[in-house]
Simulated assay, not measured.
Amino acid sequence: MSSLELTPLFCGLTELEIRSCLIFQHGSMALEYYREPQFANELYKINSCTKSVLAALVSIAMDQQIVPQPGTPILEFFPQIAEDSDIRKRDITIEHLLTMSAGFSWTEFGGQNSFPTMSKTSDWVQFVLSQPLADVPGTRMEYNSGCSQLLATILRHASGQAVAEFAEQQLFQPLGIESYHWETDPQGTHTGGFGLHLKPMGMLQFGLLYLHEGSREGRQFIQAETVRQSTRALLPTVKPQKAFYGWHWWASSFSDETEKSAETDYYYALGFGGQYIVVIPSYDMVVVVTADKFKKKRTPVDIFRQYIVPMLVQQG
């Protein structure tokens, strides 16, 4: 991308007061923007982008046979499910948690069965497991941070380590992510669906690992097939995005509507308020966006779709 092509993006980022935006393509930084210089070195909450980091850790643990295979019923980790009157809960698998298709009756952003209600209880896991089923497990995606907390709990028990400790050894330190902050639930399990704080460059390093199909400097952190499986468009979604969902990753595509060209696939981590880690394999590109000036009642501007995609289409 030339500086001329980046001019509209710079103007948009400045006007919208985006916190940071990084674009890495073809092995080098095409754009490194911070609203304030100090933001480059400040930890910032990445909200539900945490889910995609957790998915990476679970994928690593599966590849190393620490966590059992995706089709394993979670009954193995939560035996109390056997006492539930709804026997369908015994069919919930690890993959159902990863694709948020466990079937629980859940309204993520408010109400009796929601993330805010869960976070006010003394035992998040028991709260999630006690929710009634609205769907047969595996049939429909319903956005649910409770599924993420179950996954974090499984990883903790299977590995015998705190989730953050496992992350440090298996992911953060090798990627050069030296500082982070990660919140925990009342049982001391690190939060699976939110609560991780990273620097923008740490988010970028994580995105690059996926761009390179789980490999970095000759070391295979996640098997390439596991990366491909986890980022596939597995289930259609409506909320909070109309797209598709994989293993705690969103998947979508774009095209040049004037040329009626083929669709370009991409996948992304998405956090409340406009936090993004976007991977576009065919363009050899990773985009990171963080935002902090947003209103709860307004949908944040999708910098990638509204500003970067038009540049990519023009670039051809």
Rank of each mutant, 00 (worst) to 15 (best):
P70C: 08
P73L: 10
V301R: 00
Q80N: 11
K242N: 09
G71N: 14
P137R: 07
Y283M: 12
E76W: 01
D256I: 03
M285R: 00
S101N: 08
E263R: 01
P68C: 13
H190P: 06
P37D: 15
V279M: 06
Y266A: 01
L98W: 08
L57W: 14
G195V: 08
L57G: 14
S122K: 13
E225L: 07
C11R: 09
L16N: 07
S230D: 09
L75N: 08
F127H: 06
I18P: 03
P186C: 14
Q65R: 01
E36F: 15
P300Q: 05
W247Y: 14
G218T: 02
T93A: 12
E225D: 15
K89W: 09
K120L: 15
S52V: 07
L133E: 13
P281Q: 12
E225N: 11
F254I: 01
H212A: 11
E178P: 01
S114C: 11
Q173W: 09
H96V: 06
V128R: 01
E257A: 09
P186L: 12
I222M: 03
F115T: 15
F39C: 14
M141I: 00
D256A: 07
Y268G: 03
I60R: 02
S130F: 08
K242I: 11
P68I: 05
D135G: 03
A56L: 11
G12K: 00
A262G: 13
K120G: 14
G246S: 00
G271Y: 00
I280R: 00
P300N: 06
Q38P: 06
G274Q: 06
Q315L: 11
M1V: 13
K297D: 14
E5I: 01
A291E: 11
K89D: 15
F39L: 15
P37C: 05
T226E: 10
I303K: 01
W247N: 02
Q205Y: 04
I303Q: 07
L235W: 02
P174T: 06
K89V: 14
I308L: 02
Q64H: 14
I92M: 13
P8V: 02
Y180E: 04
K242Y: 02
R219T: 14
T231H: 02
K260I: 11
I81G: 07
A134V: 06
S179R: 12
A262Y: 10
L9C: 06
F221I: 08
P132K: 08
F221L: 12
